[in-house]
């Protein structure tokens, strides 16, 4: 039980990195990127390319890939996403769905359908472990992934809280037009957010490739986990995304101790339960009346730094 809990928490670190970009895009740009998983796989392939063809060491390759992924995100937002978001709610879904198909088949064309992994390039790290008391062992790679997740999300949270860019991002998330009136270039902010989001996707892809095998068609399966982590943790909240990832990972590994088939089922059930509660709360708020008092009775449910809280009223 304790073992399943620890493994689940560590797995949650990966989900959090994967979901953070999706959450940021939705919270700031209000854009649902269905190609997020495929962008993660693209990042993994770029790292693999840097390692196998250019001969860089894996961690250098990851560091070199992130700016490239950020540039891709910036360009996508500047040339594509910003246009589609004007076309209504459906158009971003359709275009990013199409982008996903293009990425999958483009990667198939460039890299073939052979499964690939970064695990064989990082020596023993892909399977080395530390022994803990009570016969529990934790893999070094999952621990590193988790630490990176906490570091990255913490840094981003600091950026959002204390820097000029962070203030601009929060202001834009809250109300883009009012932010523009105050002298913020909302489009530039959106591009910055997209750049961060796609870079995070690439980082997640690199960790996925270290832990597992990837192929050009592996993206959509990852997107599902990212979505679940985002919804569980609360859209637009970075710490919430980390919590969401951990809850998802723990639910999965605890589910697997109940029944081997319970791994994904438990994750999906927790996701559906949280989604149901959120919908119910939103519904009650809209209805007003006595039920609207329910969330207000629990002040702990409204952390101040939450972006989601701000976005829910910001839609013009």
């Amino acid at each position: 039980m304790l073992d399943a809990l620890i493994q689940g928490i560590l797995l949650g670190g990966y989900y959090a990195i994967l979901a953070a970009g999706l959450s940021l895009m939705f919270g700031v740009v209000r854009f649902i990127n269905l190609a997020h998983g495929d962008l993660a796989i693209l990042g993994a392939y770029l790292v693999l390319f840097a390692v196998e063809v250019l001969g860089l060491s894996p961690w250098v390759a990851v560091a070199a890939t992130l700016p490239i992924m950020a540039l891709i995100g910036w360009l996508l937002q500047a040339t594509w996403f910003a246009r589609t978001v004007k076309g209504g709610f459906l158009l971003p879904l359709l275009t990013t769905f199409g982008l996903g198909a293009v990425l999958q088949n483009g990667m198939f064309g460039l890299f073939g359908s052979d499964t690939k992994s970064l695990g064989n390039h990082i020596g023993n790290l892909s399977w080395a472990s530390w022994q803990l008391p009570f016969g529990i062992s934790v893999g070094q790679l999952p621990v590193i992934t988790f630490v990176v997740a906490v570091t990255v999300l913490g840094t981003l949270q600091l950026v959002l809280s204390f820097t000029r860019l962070g203030r601009a991002i929060r202001a834009t998330a809250s109300d883009p037009e009012a932010a523009e009136l105050s002298g913020i270039d909302a489009r530039a902010v959106h591009r910055a957010a997209a750049a961060i989001a796609v870079a995070l996707a690439g980082l997640a892809g690199a960790f996925l490739a270290m832990r597992a095998l990837i192929n050009p068609y592996a993206g959509p399966a990852q997107l599902i986990f990212a979505f679940e982590a985002v919804v569980i943790g609360g859209i637009g909240s970075l710490w919430g995304t980390l919590i969401g990832g951990i809850v998802l990972g723990v639910a999965q590994s605890l589910g697997a101790t109940v029944s081997a088939q319970g791994f994904q089922l438990a994750g999906h059930l927790v996701f559906l339960a949280v989604l149901g509660v959120r919908l119910y709360l939103a519904h009650s708020r809209n209805l007003g009346g006595w039920r609207s008092l329910l969330p207000a009775l629990k002040p702990g449910r409204k952390p101040a730094a939450r972006l989601q809280h701000a976005t829910s009223e910001g839609r013009s």
Binding site: A4, G8, A221, G249, Q252, A256, T257, S259, A260, Q264
Partner: peptide, 17 residues
């Protein structure tokens, strides 16, 4: 036999233990 599991499972600690 620990029983059937779903494809795409990311953590096998139960089976391994």
């Amino acid at each position: 036999d620990p029983g059937p599991y779903e494809n795409g499972t990311a953590d096998f600690s139960t089976q391994i233990n």
